[in-house]
Simulated scan of single mutants.
Amino acid sequence: MERPLPILRAGPAREVSCDPTTLRRRARSSGADRLVRVGPNAFVEGTRWDSAGPRQRYVTRVYARLGRIGTAAVASHASAAAVLGLPALGGWEVPVHATVPETMYRGRTRDLVLHTRPVRADERLPARGVRVTTVPRTVVDIAMRDDLRSAVVVADGALRAGTGAAELAAAVDRRARGHRRAEHVLGLADGRAGSTAESFARVVFLELGLPRPVLQQEFVVDGRRFSVDFWFPDQGVVVEIDGRAKYTQERYLAGRSPTEVFLDEKRRHERLLTVPGVRTIIQLEWRDLFDPDALVRRFRAAGLPCPVRPARSARPGAA
């Protein structure tokens, strides 16, 4: 589970001679002792905040809020996904989500969204002083509420991390509003998707009317195995999702220069094109998935049947 940053509150802070007035003053400061306000009566040291990533910052806001709401609240939806390490399509600039008893419901604000669908004891987990919904419950909550792209990304991530499809299916409450949407998402979910971009791409392909591709198809060339992101066997088309991270982040570079990575990728594609049945390879970047018009042109030029241009397409704002 993702750890929050250490949170300072007025009560515990008094033990180290730091009263509420001092905390607020430090939050207005730009000096070395500056604090960042992460919730009501909740602050984080500025240096820690600056070095944290988007997910950890958001998780810190979740803990700050749940500590304020009370023990009856359970982090859920996007907030549970962040704590549990599940992916997100739209990033972490979202309100905190919590599920509470109906007696505690007071509507939503810009920073806090409350839900009231009851959470059973077996649907929640302890997490460093707060409680979060389990992975299956979290996936189903998001599937019943969010758009298809975001929901498939989370469901794929859960399967990829080891949650079973049967566990996800068992978490669907057929009495709940939105259960049919959840079942649709789980029907599309596939743990073979190797990344958030691949999960998102699958939904874009579905929206554009493409045939359902084979995921992580392996080809053997000269005794070496090569796995591709998407394989359309009837058309002989390979589609791969490559981001700039492959050429900039050390975990992908593995000691190679960006030029060496580029050349290795070029040689890999040359080998794949020697496989009988592989006619062409389409390389996509993350940004390409937000331009359905250009995708349709490229897919049709490669021989992929792309019969529709959906009215509801993958635009940046929709994610």
Results as ranks from 00 to 15, higher is better:
221 V>H: 04
150 S>F: 12
52 A>G: 02
103 T>Q: 10
231 W>P: 01
100 V>K: 10
95 P>H: 07
209 G>T: 13
53 G>V: 10
267 R>G: 02
152 V>T: 03
312 R>V: 15
244 R>I: 15
294 A>E: 11
47 T>R: 02
194 G>C: 01
307 P>I: 15
221 V>R: 04
217 Q>C: 05
117 R>P: 02
224 R>Y: 04
91 G>E: 01
172 V>M: 03
273 L>E: 02
241 I>E: 03
103 T>R: 13
65 R>C: 12
167 E>H: 08
289 L>F: 07
153 V>P: 01
140 V>R: 03
29 S>V: 01
269 H>R: 12
48 R>N: 09
260 E>Q: 15
27 A>W: 01
195 S>V: 10
100 V>D: 05
22 T>Q: 11
203 V>K: 00
247 Y>F: 15
195 S>L: 06
135 V>W: 11
238 V>E: 00
65 R>P: 00
220 V>R: 12
94 V>N: 01
11 G>P: 00
238 V>H: 02
69 I>L: 15
250 E>M: 12
99 T>E: 02
85 G>E: 05
125 L>M: 05
168 L>I: 08
102 E>W: 09
68 R>M: 03
311 A>I: 15
240 E>N: 02
231 W>F: 08
102 E>H: 07
50 D>V: 11
105 Y>T: 02
172 V>L: 06
220 V>Q: 01
221 V>K: 03
86 L>H: 04
309 R>E: 03
47 T>I: 06
17 S>H: 13
85 G>D: 06
192 R>F: 14
218 E>M: 12
59 V>P: 00
317 G>F: 08
286 W>Y: 13
48 R>Y: 07
102 E>N: 09
154 V>A: 03
236 G>E: 04
199 S>F: 13
131 R>M: 10
229 D>G: 11
77 H>F: 13
170 A>C: 04
287 R>F: 07
160 R>G: 04
135 V>K: 00
160 R>Q: 11
80 A>C: 06
30 S>E: 00
240 E>T: 03
